[in-house]
Simulated scan of single mutants.
Amino acid sequence: MKNRFIIDNKITNEFVEAYTKTLYRIIGENKHSSIKPCHWFEQRLMTGRKNRNCYKGIFGIQSHRCLQNTPSLPFCNQQCVFCWRDMEVGSLGNEFNVEADDPKLLLNEMLRHHQDIIKNHLPLRRYLDNYEIMIDILYFMLVDNNEIYNINSLNKKIHVSKSKIERAMILLKNQEFIRPTDNTNRNFKLDGDIKCCIGSREEVETLI
């Protein structure tokens, strides 16, 4: 059965464009390989937190050192629930039926594209903004005399938007640096261990 995405045993640009629109990188001359950094790669790389790791951490694989890739993007006889392929674009068949690229060249190209994504396409500025706001919030809570804080009270002291404060507080809560005081998850207090053991902004920066 002919497939409109394969002409003369070559994958067409139409198929490639369907994937590149969703941030995949198609690798190699014959376009059968791909990489795409996953959510956990970005989370672990940007936060440095051990708990920001995918299930492969059970096997000793650290997400920030993982390169999600396949040498056979269009050809698969499975429909796995957690597959990172674009299921809407679909598979081009069960059998690998195009000319294969040289494995060494593929590996070099995968590494080159991966490095380019890290350097030029990850939202570093957004994460650095979060980092600075997290430090400001935690240090303010440390030196202030109040016991309970929320977005509104912090917004009056830390002059950034409420949405940025909320995002930073979610990150602080997830790391258990601050704890909710009630079931609404709107009011927070500083974790007791931090309050008794951290005394300077430099120590807050090291902690975060």
Rank of each mutant, 00 (worst) to 15 (best):
Y131T: 01
N69W: 12
R179L: 15
V81M: 13
L73S: 11
L171H: 14
N150R: 04
I165T: 02
N155Y: 15
N51A: 09
C54W: 08
M46G: 04
L154C: 03
N3T: 00
E14Q: 02
G93A: 03
G28F: 10
Q62P: 01
H39K: 11
I170F: 13
K157Q: 14
E147R: 06
L67S: 03
F96V: 06
K31V: 07
C66K: 02
R201L: 07
S63N: 00
E29Q: 09
T181N: 08
T12Q: 03
C54P: 05
V16C: 03
N150D: 13
L73C: 13
N152S: 12
I148T: 04
V81A: 14
G48D: 09
N174C: 05
E14P: 03
Y127M: 01
L171Q: 12
P180K: 14
N174W: 07
K156P: 02
I61V: 11
N9R: 11
L23M: 15
S72D: 09
E14I: 02
I137L: 07
E176F: 13
D144K: 01
D191E: 09
L124S: 03
G93W: 08
R65L: 13
Y55H: 12
H32L: 09
T181I: 10
R52A: 10
I165C: 04
S63Q: 00
N3C: 03
A18L: 11
D191F: 09
N150S: 03
L154M: 00
C196M: 15
N77K: 15
G90Y: 05
N94E: 15
H64P: 00
I194D: 06
N155K: 12
N146P: 02
L138W: 01
N130H: 04
Y19D: 01
K119W: 05
D101N: 08
S91M: 08
G90V: 01
K119P: 00
K156W: 11
S91H: 12
N30K: 08
T206R: 14
F75Q: 05
S91C: 08
L45A: 01
E176K: 15
G48Q: 12
K10L: 08
D129S: 02
N155R: 10
T70M: 10
Q79V: 12
L142E: 05
I26A: 07
G57C: 13
L23G: 06
E42S: 12
L107G: 05
L128S: 01
N53V: 11
R49E: 11
P71Q: 10
C83V: 07
R44H: 15
E147M: 02
I151W: 05
